[in-house]
């Protein structure tokens, strides 16, 4: 396990997102009020940096580039999003927000059927 401190609970205001460098891995930490969540920092659609383009409201994260939306607690997509959010495991250690960054999570921006698209 590679639990590392991302930030302190006071570093991220309720209903906001902030990006931290966690042992060389960029991680986006969200404060939902009663819970912290951690995601890769780029939008699963076109890699827009969610720290800037993301809006949190009512447990939903919206990317203002094309209005893709997700349930922040489960990562589940809401229309028009076509892919779920990936999530890191998070736990609190006192005032520290700890994130398990054993493997850097990255979106598959290639399509599954790309393979037979020969060059």
């Amino acid at each position: 396990m590679a639990w590392k401190k991302a930030c302190s609970v006071n570093d991220v205001a309720v209903d906001t997102l902030r990006k931290f460098d966690v042992g060389g891995v960029g991680v986006l930490v969200a404060n939902l009020g009663d819970e912290f969540k951690a995601y890769p920092p780029a939008c699963p659609h076109m890699e827009e940096p969610l720290e800037q383009s993301g809006v949190c409201s009512g447990g939903l994260l919206t990317c203002t580039k094309h209005l893709w939306q997700w349930d922040m607690r489960t990562g589940e997509q809401r229309a028009p999003a076509e892919k779920p959010l990936l999530m890191y495991d998070v736990r609190l250690d006192g005032d520290d927000v700890m994130v398990n960054v054993e493997h850097e999570l990255e979106y598959e921006y290639e399509e599954e059927d790309d393979d037979d698209f020969e060059w």
């Binding site: 209903d15 809006v55 409201s57 009512g58 939903l60 919206t62 203002t64 893709w68 809401r78 229309a79």
Partner: peptide, 15 residues
């Protein structure tokens, strides 16, 4: 868009 989402709570389909 931020205002409409955060304060208006409008769904993406209405924006």
């Amino acid at each position: 868009l931020r205002v409409l989402i955060v304060e208006g709570r409008l769904p993406a389909s209405s924006i």
